[in-house]
């Protein structure tokens, strides 16, 4: 049911863990729906120096989390904000249709982490 790429990320998730002194944290999903993700970012000179995730969810939720951290790392905030759910799914060689909606939350998580970072910057000014 899953592509080899999804299974590979499920087997060896990249950037799994927390960033204790993160500059931004994005939490999306809801365990009631079966998926919950936390994305942590570290920002330096407008770029994502580090991105990490923790995820409760199915194989697709774990693979998309892993993939989005890999895609976002090293990108500018603007570039990272342009990463869409579609991009993540495509990079994984596609997702089963029922997983497109419920478990493809990782891009939202990334965007939420960036928004959190930007809000903190605002309030610091």
């Amino acid at each position: 049911m899953y592509s080899e790429k999804v299974m590979e990320h499920f087997r060896n998730p990249r950037n799994m863990g927390e960033i204790p002194d993160a500059d931004g944290v994005g939490r999306v999903g809801n365990p009631v729906c079966g998926d919950l993700m936390t994305i942590y970012i570290k920002v330096k000179d407008g770029r994502l120096e580090d991105v990490k995730f923790k995820t409760f969810g199915c194989g697709a939720a774990i693979a998309t989390s892993s993939m989005v951290t890999e895609m976002a790392k090293g990108k500018t905030l603007e570039e990272a904000l342009r990463i869409s759910k579609m991009d993540v799914a495509q990079a994984l060689g596609g997702l089963p249709p029922i997983k497109m909606h419920c478990s493809n939350l990782a891009a939202d998580g990334l965007h939420a982490a960036i928004a959190d970072y930007q809000k903190k910057q605002q309030s610091r000014k």
Binding site: M7, F10, R11, D35, F56, G57, C58, I62
Partner: peptide
């Protein structure tokens, strides 16, 4: 506690 079943099934299948 703390985990989702489908991921467990996949992990066991591996």
């Amino acid at each position: 506690a703390g985990i989702e079943g489908e991921a467990l099934i996949l992990g066991l299948d591996e």
